[in-house]
Design a protein around this nucleic acid. Structure first.
Lengths: 152, 152
DNA sequence: CGAAAGCGCACCATATTGGTGCTGTATCCG
DNA sequence: CGGATACAGCACCAATATGGTGCGCTTTCG
């Protein structure tokens, strides 16, 4: 499906919340009191984000997480890529682009795939939209976001 | 995952092929000889597209499918929506936008969901990209597609 | 008539997703 | 010191989505 996973959704919500408290250490408990999210899963996601260096963790009582970088420097695309890999719309995209010339795993349709090129364009556009939106944008959610892409 | 399903992928390939043979009736067999696709599944997808009025079917020997409308008038968005529903990135999006005020099924985060608005923007942008790309665009796959969206 | 091709409906194996259990370790505070 | 709080790691599970198949029926061409 053309949809973000819950993990990604929770991750974005958590990171956005962290963005509103830059510098502070926020516990998973606080996050789950602010929004009705499954605590354990959110913790799991934060752990992943920590491993990937997007957040810093502090252990022990009064511990928690904090953004590792300024909110404006973390794009939604980075978060998505971290939590569910690069968006690649079609399978030949992912195989073609990332496995490249490996004997196994190359898109069987290869050069005669009739939709490869335009779909690639769409994917690139989607990706650049995600890249162009930062956590800071999400944080001030009344602001118009990526309006450039809406102007047609 | 932020990815189209195989069904959608096959559907786009099939429709694009049909676009190159406007007016003619093309059998599933021909499609699967042109590209290495699982025949039965492609047939299943074409059936769905037929029910939704995107293609016309002709039964009997020398039967097959043909585009019901000019390729330029069928957007990728329409195909995606037909085969896997509207792209809605987040679950609160889909619940919020389509179930609206129903007692059950409303996004629990509702108004305090911190990422709703910007994600909605992204979704709208994605959607308009899909809408702006037609089967005719896919058919002539060397053409630049939706470059407007790449200009940032 | 018989082969080709679509129609309908059900069914299945696997992968992904969303979520939980449990144990361990670090840190704060009284 | 000792408990309470909170992250770390690992494994596991149920539900759902996905990709794909079986099979018999109907329609049409030659």
């Amino acid at each position: 499906m053309l949809q973000l996973t819950k993990r990604t959704e929770y991750g974005l919500i958590a990171l956005t919340h962290l963005a509103t408290r830059a510098g502070e250490v926020v516990s998973v408990r606080e996050l789950c009191e602010a929004y009705p999210l499954p605590k354990r899963l959110v913790a799991e996601v934060l752990k992943d984000l920590c491993r990937e260096g997007l957040v810093d963790s502090t252990r022990g009582a009064s511990g928690g997480y904090a953004l590792a970088r300024p909110a404006a420097e973390v794009s939604v695309g980075t978060v998505v890529a971290t939590l569910e890999g690069h968006p690649s719309l079609t399978s030949c995209e992912s195989l073609g682009a990332y496995v490249a010339n490996a004997t196994r795993g190359v898109c069987e349709l290869e050069s005669n795939c009739p939709i490869k090129s335009p779909i690639h364009q769409l994917r690139a556009s989607l990706w650049s939209m995600l890249e162009a939106t930062s956590l800071a944008d999400l944080a001030q959610h009344d602001r118009a976001v990526s309006t450039a892409f809406l102007s047609r």
